[in-house]
Simulated assay, not measured.
Amino acid sequence: MRVLGIETSCDETGVAVYDTTAGGSAGLRAHAVYSQIALHAEYGGVVPELASRDHVRKLLSLVRQTLAEAGLTTADLDGVAYTAGPGLVGALLVGAGTARALAWALDVPAIGVHHMEGHLLAPLIEDDPPEPPFVALLVSGGHTQLVAVDAIGRYRMLGETLDDAAGEAFDKTAKLMGLPYPGGPQLAALAEQGTPGAYRFARPMTDRPGLDFSFSGLKTQVLLAWQQSDQSPQTRADIARGFEDAVVDTLAIKCERALDAAGSDTPACNTLVVAGGVGANKRLRARLQAMCVQRGGRACFPRPALCTDNGAMIAFAGALRLQAGQHDDAQVKVVARWDMAALPPVAAGMVEQE
C-alpha cells in the first residue's frame, strides 16, 4: 500500500509517501517539508491566518514534488492520510480538504491522523524499530507528555504539562533574552557556549511524586536571573546552559519514573521512545540514551528531520491504520483538541520498515 501523508497542523507544510509493500521500494519513498519560519519571524510567533494561507499556496506543489521524487503519480496511490488534529483549525482544514478531494478523485480510502500519534510513531520508521510495550516522551510544540504504549493505538497518559510545555519554555525563554525567532533552537545552540554550573535553576516538580510537568516557574527564574545579570554575551550563554540543563534533568527524571511506573504493570519496560521538536536536542538525547542503557534498555529517536512536524510521520501512522482496514467517511472534519487515548487500537501487524 502506497500512502500519501499530508501535515498542515501549524507552520510546516509536510508531504511524504510511505510504501508498505515488501521489497526494495518499501518504506519512506520521499518526503518534503516547507517551513514558514521566515513568514512568521516578523511577528515573533505563528499567525494562524497567515499560516493557513501559506499552506494553500505551497501544498499542491509540494505534493507534486514529493510524488516526483518517489517516482510515482497520483494513480499509484492506494490511500491518503492527513493530520486531522490537534492543531490550528484553519491550517488543518487546508490539508484535510486537499486530502479528502484527492482521495475522492482517486477512489482510494483516506484517514485523519492524530498529530501526536504521528510524532509518537516517527521513531518506528527508522531501522530496528522498538516494539510495544514502551514508554513515549512526546515533546512537541505545546505538548509535553509521557505515554504508556501498550500496543499501537492503545495509549495510557502517564503525565503531561500543567502549563508551559518544554518547547514553549525554550521559545519563551529565548525571546525574553532577545534571541531571534524561532528561539528554541537558538537557545540550544547558545547553551553549547555556556559554562556548566554557572547558573543552576530548579528542576520543577521533581521534589514530589508524580509524572506531570510544569515549566512556567523555570521560565520566571530565568527571567529574574537575566534581569539581574550584566547581560553580556557570555552571561547569556551561561544562563542558556543553566536553563537547558534544568529542562534536560527534569525530563530525564520524569522519564525514569515513568519507566518504573510502566514496569510495575509490564515487567522490564526499559524502552523509551522520544519524539517531537525538543527530541532533536543533543544533550537530551545523550542523557536519555545513557539513562536507558544503564537500566539495560534503550532510547529510540527519529532522525532530526523527523522530529519537527513532517508528512512522513503522518504517512506512516496513516498506513498502519489504513492497512488495518480503518478509514474515514468523506466528511472534511478536523479538531483543535483531541484525546489520543480515545483512538481505536490498530489490530494489524507492523508494516514493513524502511
Rank of each mutant, 00 (worst) to 15 (best):
L93V: 00
Q323N: 12
E7S: 11
L137A: 08
R283T: 15
H115N: 06
S9K: 01
A68I: 05
F213P: 12
E7H: 09
T206D: 06
L28H: 12
G217H: 06
V274D: 02
L60S: 15
L211N: 13
D238N: 15
P304C: 09
T173N: 14
A189R: 15
P86N: 03
G24D: 15
W226A: 04
A191I: 00
P344I: 10
G44L: 08
F316S: 02
T308C: 01
K333S: 14
F170I: 09
A26K: 12
P130E: 04
L176Q: 15
G277F: 03
P345F: 08
S52P: 03
R53T: 05
E12V: 00
R203Q: 14
D328N: 14
G263Y: 04
S52Q: 14
A189W: 03
A312N: 07
A342D: 15
L322F: 07
K282F: 01
D127K: 11
C300L: 00
A41V: 07
T8I: 07
L190V: 08
E126M: 12
V94P: 05
L179P: 05
R2V: 05
C307K: 02
E42M: 08
R321Q: 15
R154C: 10
L306D: 02
L259G: 11
V17K: 01
C307S: 10
E12F: 00
E192C: 08
A174F: 06
C269G: 02
G296Y: 03
M340C: 00
L158V: 03
V3I: 13
S214F: 09
D230V: 06
A315M: 02
G118S: 12
M350S: 12
E49G: 10
L320K: 11
E49R: 14
N281Y: 07
G141T: 00
A30P: 09
S232Q: 14
G297M: 01
L106R: 02
G194A: 11
R29Y: 06
T98R: 03
A198T: 11
N310R: 04
D329L: 10
L251Y: 01
E131P: 00
E192N: 05
A22C: 05
Q231G: 11
G167W: 03
V113A: 07
D238P: 06
A198L: 09
M350L: 13
D171R: 13
P132L: 10
R241C: 14
T21D: 15
L343K: 05
G23T: 09
W104E: 10
A299I: 00
W338M: 13
G349Y: 04
L137C: 02
A68E: 15
G349R: 09
P267T: 13
A312C: 07
G276V: 05
A315I: 07
T13D: 05
Q221H: 12
T206P: 08
P344S: 12
R283Q: 15
Q353G: 11
T8F: 03
A315N: 04
E7A: 09
C269S: 10
Y199N: 05
P304M: 06
E131H: 03
A324S: 15
G210P: 06
A96Y: 07
H143E: 12
G112E: 11
R236G: 13
K175G: 13
P304S: 08
R64L: 13
R2T: 03
L251A: 00
L146Q: 12
Q326D: 15
A101I: 03
G184T: 07
T83K: 00
G118D: 01
D107V: 05
V108H: 02
R154T: 15
S214C: 13
V247S: 01
D150G: 14
G197H: 04
E49Y: 07
P304I: 06
L179G: 02
D212Q: 14
